[in-house]
């Protein structure tokens, strides 16, 4: 007489175990819609059609290298003041501090989180994995604009890059890549996680 009930309970347990893993894609979808976690889409945006010249938004840049990643990336201006809708360019200089060739991946994040989906990038070094020779310096251009739809209470936002050393996992994707190839790869990584950098 217990069997039917036990079956249901065991199914619930298995279901909840699966649910824990289902939370992973659900979380991504949820954050995509709401922009909750400040994750930025790694896709090339279209140019804006309108400009809101009634206000200025302060955009600052920070970068930080993840523990043992031997990179330094600096924006040439600490911050820029932009009109929503208007395209801006900022130069970044990346430096490989190690004596070996390394591959860098920058992961962008926007704070406050809800502003993430209003920051559009037309060109960004974060779209690609960036191979850097030993001690090499390289210049990149970030081209972006802030959406005219950006909520009025957001007057400043910060674009932050976390730099990862992905030399080891990169070998799988050697060769030239186009941007769209990378983008599809990025989504592949998201749904089918691969190992990131190995830090001590």
């Amino acid at each position: 007489m217990h069997k039917a009930l036990i079956q249901k309970l065991v199914l619930t347990v298995l279901g909840m175990f699966a649910f824990a893993f289902a939370l992973v894609p659900l979380y991504d979808v949820f954050c995509d819609i709401t922009g909750l976690n400040g994750k930025v889409d790694l896709v090339v945006a279209e140019q804006s059609t309108s400009v809101d010249d009634s206000r200025q938004v302060e955009v600052s840049f920070t970068t930080h290298a993840k523990s043992s990643a031997p990179f330094q990336v600096k924006a040439q201006q600490y911050s820029v003041s932009v009109q929503p809708g208007k395209l801006s360019e900022v130069r970044f200089v990346a430096h490989n501090l190690s004596d070996t060739a390394r591959v860098m991946q920058a992961i962008p994040s926007v704070s406050p989180g809800q502003a993430a989906k209003y920051l559009h990038k037309l060109a960004c070094f974060c779209f690609d994995q960036q191979p850097l020779d030993a001690n090499q310096s390289m210049e990149f251009v970030l081209r972006f604009y802030v959406d005219t739809e950006l909520p009025k209470d957001v007057q400043e936002l910060t674009l932050s890059y976390t730099l990862y050393d992905i030399t080891e996992s990169e070998t799988a994707y050697s060769g030239e890549q186009t941007q769209s190839q990378f983008v599809s790869q990025y989504y592949l990584i998201q749904t089918n996680p691969v190992r990131g950098p190995q830090n001590g």
């Binding site: 824990a20 994750k39 991946q105 996680p193």
Partner: peptide, 29 residues
């Protein structure tokens, strides 16, 4: 409790088997 089991399992695979559920470099969070 199954959700806790799921969480520790993800920690296990992130640490030892190369997944990146919680690692931003691999698309996690």
């Amino acid at each position: 409790m199954p959700v806790l089991a799921g969480a520790v399992t993800m920690v296990l695979t992130d640490k030892y088997f190369g997944t990146s559920f919680f690692d931003a470099a691999g698309g996690g969070d």
